[in-house]
Computed example of a mutant assay.
Amino acid sequence: DPPYGLTDGDTSSLREIGFNGLYRLTPDGMVTLIDGSHRRPNGVTLSPDGRTLYLALSDEKRPQVLAYSLGADGLPTGQRLFRDMGKELAAGEPGLPDGIKTAPDGTVFATGPGGVHVCAPDGRLLGKIRTGKAIANCCIGEDGKTLFLTSADRLAAVPLIARGG
């Protein structure tokens, strides 16, 4: 995770390691590094089948969501760009990729410039929940009926329409 909260950020003497990483906690309690190559790895979520891990990059130089294919052992077997939010950021829309959640039907809700990007499992943009401000996080609650959003000064609830059978 990024060095948020440290006064000098990346150059803080309080940092214990020299990179920001994406980690995995194994069932037996071991922490292993999955990827240490990103500047601002942040929000993570899994696909409903557990075969894809989505990673939000809270990086103004690379505002993206990546998708990692996972093998049976839970380790990555490949990586691809899932959603690039550079166009929205360049247009001045507030926010960066941050919180991200996956619905039971595979729909991905990724916070980013302009609000929440609602994406199909293949990365196609289905729509945006435009908020006019940076959204830090989101979660799905009330048995999948509501998407909750948080910002610096608000908590919002957005009703969801169930898809599929």
Rank of each mutant, 00 (worst) to 15 (best):
Leu33Gly: 09
Glu93Gly: 04
Ser37Asp: 07
Lys145Pro: 08
Ala67Ile: 05
Thr111Tyr: 11
Gly106Ile: 09
Glu60Ser: 10
Gly29Val: 06
Pro48Ser: 01
Met85Thr: 08
Ala72Cys: 06
Val108Asp: 06
Thr45Gly: 09
Thr7His: 09
Tyr68Trp: 08
Pro3Asp: 01
Val116Cys: 07
Arg154Tyr: 03
Gly71Trp: 07
Leu75Lys: 13
Leu14Tyr: 05
Ile17Gln: 14
Ala110Val: 15
Gly21Thr: 04
Lys101Thr: 09
Gly5Thr: 05
Arg124Cys: 12
Ser13Ile: 09
Leu125His: 02
Gly71Asp: 06
Ala103Leu: 00
Pro121Phe: 07
Asp122Thr: 03
Gln64Asn: 04
Ser13Val: 13
Arg163Pro: 08
Pro63Asp: 06
Ile135Glu: 00
Gly21Asp: 11
Ser151Met: 06
Lys61Ser: 12
Ala152Glu: 13
Asp35Pro: 01
Ala136Met: 10
Ser58Ile: 05
Asp10Ser: 10
Cys138Lys: 05
Thr52Glu: 11
Thr77His: 05
Gly71Phe: 08
Thr111His: 13
Arg62Gly: 07
Leu125Asp: 10
Asn20Cys: 04
Pro76Cys: 02
Met30Ala: 11
Lys101Trp: 01
Val118Ala: 00
Thr7Asn: 07
Thr32Cys: 03
Tyr23Asp: 09
Ala103Arg: 02
Gly123Thr: 04
Glu16Gln: 14
Gly132Pro: 03
Leu81Glu: 15
Asp153Asn: 14
Ala136Thr: 14
Asp49Glu: 15
Ala152Ser: 11
Ala120Met: 02
Ser13Cys: 03
Phe109Pro: 05
Ser13Glu: 15
Arg163Thr: 15
Pro104Thr: 03
Asp35Met: 05
Leu57Ser: 14
Thr45Gln: 01
Arg39Phe: 10
Ile17Lys: 15
Gly9Pro: 00
Ala120Ser: 11
Asp98Phe: 13
Ile100Asp: 07
Pro41Trp: 09
Arg40Cys: 03
Ala152Thr: 05
Leu25Ala: 04
Asp153Met: 08
Asn42Lys: 08
Ser58Thr: 11
Thr52Tyr: 12
Pro113Leu: 08
Lys128Phe: 00
Ser69Tyr: 04
Asp35Asn: 06
Glu93Ser: 09
Pro27Gly: 06
Ile129Asp: 00
Ser13Ala: 15
Ala156Tyr: 12
Pro97Glu: 00
Ala72Tyr: 03
Leu46Ser: 03
Gln64Glu: 15
Asp84Gly: 02
Leu25Lys: 00
Pro48His: 07
Gly29Met: 09
Tyr4Trp: 15
Ser58Phe: 13
Tyr54Ser: 11
Pro104Arg: 10
Ile100Ser: 10
Gly114His: 02
Ala134Ile: 02
Gly132Gln: 04
Lys61Met: 14
Glu60His: 06
Tyr54Thr: 02
Thr7Gly: 06
Asn137Cys: 14
Gly112Arg: 07
Gly106Asp: 00
Leu14Thr: 01
Gly5Leu: 07
Val65Asp: 11
Ser12Val: 12
Ser12Cys: 06
Gly99Trp: 11
Arg39Ala: 15
Arg40Gly: 00
Asp59Arg: 09
Pro113Asn: 10
Leu22Tyr: 11
Lys87Thr: 09
Ile129Trp: 07
Gln79Tyr: 01
Thr11Asn: 04
Arg154Phe: 10
Ile135Phe: 10
Ala103Pro: 05
Leu96Lys: 12
Ser13His: 14
Thr102Ala: 12
Asp8Gln: 08
